[in-house]
Design a protein around this nucleic acid. Structure first.
Lengths: 168, 168
DNA sequence: CAACGAGTGTTTGGTCCCGAACAATATTTC
DNA sequence: GAAATATTGTTCGGGACCAAACACTCGTTG
């Protein structure tokens, strides 16, 4: 038992190390906790729901996007899933090998490629997504309804702010 | 201008597609916005601060951990950075090739390996981190002080809840 | 209608990333 | 103190990931 974690938290170590500097600590804790929470949640969902499906996190997200939006252009799927278009090509190759999605050329514009779920892909999402949502509920169990809504709305502000900044 | 984004948001599409199902939407929006915000922030920081340093996000996080904690065992660094120990081996190999970090065997226990920043690694963090913090402040600019603290504290609850669950 | 510019998805090269198998070392157990 | 067990970092295989280069297609402009 080394115990470094029980003795000193990261936030304490940061205070020791950076206490003298002129930094925006509120911003720092807000941002770093977003990242920590995101990693912890992803890890939790991978270990529980995705565990035995053979799907990776990104594979699931891509299928989720196609499921929600229906037949989609790859460009749209990549943006919605938050990955680069080159990455999507590889992910779709994997998902196609599982027969969960299908690529089809768009006859109206031969540059474009459409993506759809196969029947077994659709079936998978129908059984997987409720389990996924159940674990999402578990994740925020410690927050009451108001805190959940505040959390979502604060994060929406952050995302919108960054999207506006990116466009500029 | 395809405009699918201006016409229909993801949240609307989800409402259309999943409106009939018995799901915990509050949990869903809280969790999915954590993930979206995290990805947007990481992307923003990569594009601004890390842009011309040659450092990846993970490389930066690893150096940050070693900077904050001082000379550390790899096991500790991996956990703190939120990556697998096998991943850390590769990342350290990259950072060592840049001469930013250094590996040293622990004489007391020859299984263990200690990591330290080199002088140039230390110098890099001293100049990089204030810039990083400045962008963190930009990220949460739309939130007032109270919302920033609430955000951090809600996320801390989520992380702690998941850490407890993982141990069980 | 030819040439140019913009918009597609794919390929490529290098890194990240995990889980599992592994070799080396330390600790426990008898 | 020898054998069994546990711990630590590395290696390996396969997938994810991005930026940049690419090939192809469409729209526009002269």
């Amino acid at each position: 038992m080394t115990g470094h974690h029980t003795l000193r938290s990261t936030e304490e170590a940061v205070g020791d190390r950076l206490g003298g500097l002129n930094l925006d600590f509120e911003a720092m804790w807000a941002v770093s906790n977003i990242y920590r929470a995101s990693a912890a949640i992803r890890n939790h969902l991978e270990q529980t729901v995705l565990r035995d499906t053979g799907l990776t996190w990104t594979g699931f997200v891509v299928m989720w996007v196609v499921w929600i939006w229906g037949e989609s252009e790859t460009r749209h799927v990549a943006e919605e899933a938050g990955i680069a278009k080159g990455t999507l090509t590889g992910v779709l190759k994997t998902l196609e090998s599982y027969r969960y999605v299908q690529r089809m050329p768009n006859p109206a514009d031969r540059r474009r490629v459409m993506v759809t779920l196969t029947l077994s892909g659709e079936r998978l999402m129908r059984t997987l997504f409720p389990q996924f949502n159940q674990e999402e509920a578990f994740v925020v169990r410690e927050l009451d309804s108001e805190r959940r809504r505040d959390l979502a709305s604060s994060l929406r502000l952050v995302v919108q702010h960054l999207e506006r900044a990116e466009r500029a």
